[in-house]
Nucleic acid binder design. Structure first.
Lengths: 345, 345
DNA sequence: GTACGGTGCACCATCGATTGTGCAATACGG
DNA sequence: CCGTATTGCACAATCGATGGTGCACCGTAC
């Protein structure tokens, strides 16, 4: 005869069997009463009520592992993000958490460091918990994830970084980049030497969809407004602090000072070049027009003005849930225009 | 005969029974092989290896709900925080996530908005997932949570806000507040009218342990260094933006300008009074010594200098895990000194 | 009085992994 | 060659909730 292998300390307090014994009914009746399915199972309302009240008295709490094993569901819902220490993704995490809880689901958030192996690992791991659905933000390799989740029949939505053939809710990077570039150009300093009179884009990964869209808009607007846009004006040096800082230093050295305009692609890069910027003379700082494609509340209180683009994290998340619930179209891309926070002077 | 109620779409791909059939062994042997318990169960190494390799081929992934049901464990681990949009708590969340994953556990983070009913709810909810342990940061009612988790025999640690009778890892608020107050006093402006020559503490909830400790240190240091500290110098107006802003405006009106020194208790309050501060004349801003008990990277790039205290989130989390693993003392408080980031000029 | 439909519930198989136990087959000692 | 010990594994109960099915019982109709 097998005994319960669990140490005496961690056993479940009350189960439906206890309640069944207490109320003189069967476990299946108790289950039906407590899960709300009692009508469909033709349980008398009085019976259901009695069971429910006894359950409350006994402090019953369902065992979700048992329920999940039977139903292959879990009320768990996963979110993959590259990192937490990034205002955009932590905002996203917060919106996700809130929406999930509204729906009675429990959020699991995993940071995968823009590493595709870590992404695959995390998906497998989450699958073993039988999560109900998966949200993927800023994936390094969306297709890879999509394959895994499709094979497991796991409903998945991509955020921020879209995935071909899968439901995706992303920021309209083209519009955002256009707005930001315009704002930067509109506030270009008037007196600036020929050598430094151009606008530069720094940061991001040109192979990723989001960056590519931003770069393309940037190029368009710069060409429209300033006549031309050379390849050297686009410095897609990734998201890492060190390379970004180095690129910024190199650019400044090359120009003999800060450029007239600077489009900073992503908050990570902004943070890392900030320490370089603030060391420049005050006068120089007020002679450059800076924009950042991402929002940081403290950005408006800095020593120099900054235009910022804020992605609508709340809307992105809501749209993603909507796509899961309502879109029968497996390949459905929704784009959401971001918001421009113009610099305050 | 019952059929599997689950829709055909969401069934498990490979189970230990499939592998058993494939390898011609029994499910129990497969389980032992895959879980690493095969030595203890006297399975031949070759048998175990063969099973493992077949499992890999078949793309086996364990069903954690089944495992959890049997063992009453889940490898899930919970963290309660008041909110996400707070640098300290989101740092904490990140450290927690990393440490959890290092230990092969899956983090579930719930924000409870400093609401004790939400806290109790969240604990009950997490309990129904059979989480292995619970971390509670900045709880509104630690004792309440402690009761629940103790009744359920759920190993619990408190962070930031300690709980009597429970394991707690908290910042050494006394030392931190002392350091911060000293830093503020050391950089007090020299020329300031008698009316505004005092140092004020604003924000926080005096009924909570953390704030109480900070207030007490503040009072001590101010008395030591400046001779006295009146009750009106302590404005514990909570953590909400609106009341904090109102309190700041009221104070400034009363003094006819900014005070000589300001100890801002918590980053929330800092953010909300920032919009007020930046509207003051530039000269006035450079004539006030400000400190914030919390860290925000952008704080050092503002238009005026700010001393900041950074809680060591990583260490707090590590210590908390340590307490769970090693401390048999159920009532064990560990304090961790925070770090002073002096203002840069 | 019999037939028939509906009501209200109990019974039991099932989800997949874990683990106490039983029992052949082999090894080993004398 | 027999008896005991060890090895290597299979069997089956179990965790708690779910849901298909069976079946009394009651009411109504003919």
């Amino acid at each position: 005869m097998s005994k319960d292998p669990r140490t005496e300390s961690r056993k479940q307090s009350t189960t439906i069997y206890d309640i069944a014994r207490e109320t003189g009914s069967s476990p299946s009746t108790v289950s039906a009463a407590l899960s709300g399915r009692w009508k469909a199972r033709r349980i008398r309302p009085e019976t259901a009520e009695r069971i429910i009240s006894v359950a409350r008295e006994m402090g019953y709490a369902i065992n979700r592992q048992a329920r999940g094993l039977r139903t292959a569901r879990s009320d768990l819902i996963g979110l993959l993000i590259p990192e937490h220490d990034n205002r955009f993704f932590s905002d996203l995490a917060q919106s996700f958490t809130q929406e999930a809880r509204k729906r009675g689901q429990c959020p699991i958030i995993i940071a995968t460091q823009r590493d595709s192996a870590a992404e695959a690992d995390a998906v497998q791991n989450l699958l073993s918990y039988s999560i109900d659905s998966l949200f993927v933000a800023g994936a390094a390799q969306p297709e890879n994830i999509h394959q895994l989740s499709e094979a497991a029949n796991l409903p998945t939505v991509f955020l921020d970084q879209p995935c071909r053939g899968a439901r995706s809710a992303v920021t309209d990077n083209a519009i955002g980049a256009r707005q930001l570039t315009e704002a930067i150009i509109n506030t270009l300093p008037s007196k600036v030497s020929v050598k430094r009179n151009k606008v530069y884009l720094i940061g991001g990964d040109a192979t990723l969809h989001a960056s590519a869209a931003r770069i393309s808009s940037f190029r368009e607007v710069v060409t429209e407004r300033l006549g031309q846009c050379g390849e050297e004006q686009i410095i897609a040096c990734g998201y890492q602090p060190a390379p970004a800082l180095a690129a910024m230093e190199e650019l400044t050295a090359r120009l003999g000072g800060l450029p007239a305009g600077l489009f900073v692609n992503s908050i990570n890069v902004f943070e890392s070049i900030l320490q370089f910027l603030v060391q420049r003379p005050e006068a120089e700082l007020h002679n450059v027009s800076i924009g950042c494609f991402d929002y940081e509340p403290y950005g408006q209180w800095l020593r120099f003005p900054v235009h910022m683009i804020r992605q609508r994290h709340r809307q992105l998340v809501r749209t993603a849930f909507d796509l899961l619930d309502n879109s029968q179209d497996e390949d459905h891309l929704v784009q959401i225009a971001p918001e421009l926070y113009p610099a305050t002077y």
